[in-house]
């Protein structure tokens, strides 16, 4: 069985790993933002203006 020496400071990312992680985070953020807009628009189209007037 392999033994590990745990670094008390945790994992230190290389500049390349940091850069790619930042780019992935930005991409995921943009996609999630676009999905919010998409689902909002589809909801309005499917339900019509009535979505803003809930029954009392």
């Amino acid at each position: 069985m392999m033994s590990y020496e745990i670094d008390p400071k945790g994992v230190t990312l290389t500049p390349e790993q940091m850069r790619s992680r930042r780019l992935r985070n930005i991409a995921i953020g943009l996609v999630v933002g676009a999905l919010v807009v998409l689902f909002y628009a589809v909801t309005i189209v499917k339900l019509g203006p009535g979505v803003l007037k809930p029954p009392i």
Partner: peptide
């Protein structure tokens, strides 16, 4: 291993 994949790789 920690990934170094960029968005363009997923594209």
């Amino acid at each position: 291993a920690i990934s170094t994949a960029e968005p363009r790789d997923y594209l």
